[in-house]
């Protein structure tokens, strides 16, 4: 599939990342299709599910995609031990249960888990800090795959390093499995604030900024020119109510991942439905008031600020 003869991509499609990459090595997956699927998910909610039945509830509620997991993050946190890629039978079961795209997690740096997920027909791989990292220094070379990847980031440097490695979608990291929105807010503000700062820099300042961020210069230049990340940016980690989802959307992300927040709440179908509606009408307080009624209890939650350093998942990623 040759993409070099095409008339060019829109500014939102990571042209710098693509051009930069084409100079060195042929890519396997087509960048426009990989980042394009993320464009189709925008304004939507991606839900963590652990069974085909939950996947069906998510789809019926209007989820744009489901993340097929063996355990939701709050259970991974509770159970401890090594968290790995899900069982292929579970992923197959979920793929067969729904018609929306199915995502699945691979451990950071575990490119063989990613190869397995691609072979299973998974539509998007999350190289995720929620699982136990398989590599203490390096992430997966995501250009080698036709399956697109989404990666977490706590700041702009981390986001651009992941895009440099081939991630076609970013999610700002919250503290997964807590039901506490504070870290999702902190990191979304961090990423978006750094983008605004770079946008207003002189070109002379960009190389030093790239050095300080630990980010590829070409991508810093693209952010400077476009004022946005080269790929779609969702929020994840700690979203537990419709208001949480709308808060992240108003801060400026393009969609949300909800992990434990749905199936650890008192009434999962109602919560799933409400978060989907709130993500569409995030800017309409009257609508949000209506949507927030009668949902039962949200997930119990853990205060993220009280976690010790070794309990934090968000710091995983290099």
């Amino acid at each position: 599939m040759d993409t070099t003869s095409t008339p060019g991509t829109t500014a939102t499609n990571g042209t710098q990342a693509k051009a930069w990459r084409e100079g060195s090595k042929p890519e396997v997956g087509n960048w426009r299709e990989k980042s394009g699927l993320a464009q189709m998910l925008k304004g939507g909610v991606i839900m963590d599910v652990v069974t085909p039945d939950q996947a069906k509830i998510a789809e019926d509620a209007g989820a744009v995609s489901v993340m097929a997991l063996e355990r939701v993050p709050s259970d991974i946190r509770r159970d401890g031990g090594v968290a790995r890629m899900s069982d292929p039978d579970l992923i197959d079961g979920i793929i067969n249960a729904v018609s929306i795209p199915v995502m699945a997690n691979a451990r950071i740096g575990h490119f063989v888990e990613a190869q397995v997920l691609e072979a299973l027909g998974v539509d998007y791989c999350d190289e995720s800090e929620v699982l136990t990292p398989a590599d203490n220094s390096f992430h997966i070379n995501k250009w080698e795959f036709k399956m697109p990847f989404v990666c977490g980031a706590t700041n702009l440097g981390e986001a651009l390093r992941r895009i440099g490695e081939g991630a076609a979608m970013i999610r700002t990291k919250g503290e997964a499995g807590t039901g506490d929105i504070v870290n999702a807010v902190t990191h979304a503000r961090e990423v978006l604030g750094e983008i605004r700062k770079i946008q207003h820099m002189d070109e002379e300042e960009l190389m030093t900024e790239a050095k300080n961020l630990g980010a590829p210069f070409e991508l810093v230049l693209e952010v400077h020119k476009t004022g946005k990340l080269p790929v779609v940016n969702f929020a994840a980690g700690g979203i537990a109510t419709p208001a949480d989802a709308a808060l992240m959307m108003q801060i400026g992300v393009e969609g949300v991942f909800v992990g434990s927040g749905i199936f650890k709440s008192e009434n999962p179908p109602a919560m799933a439905d409400a978060i989907v509606r709130a993500t569409t009408h995030y800017n309409d307080p009257d609508m949000l008031a209506e949507i927030s009624r009668g949902l039962g209890d949200a997930m119990a939650g853990l205060e993220a600020n009280k976690l010790t350093a070794d309990q934090r998942l968000e710091t995983r990623g290099w």
Binding site: G62, S99, V276
Partner: peptide, 15 residues
């Protein structure tokens, strides 16, 4: 536009 047809159909109905 493009998106997930199940989601868009549901929201068209809901709203």
């Amino acid at each position: 536009p493009g998106g997930e047809s199940t989601t868009i159909c549901r929201l068209i109905d809901l709203f």
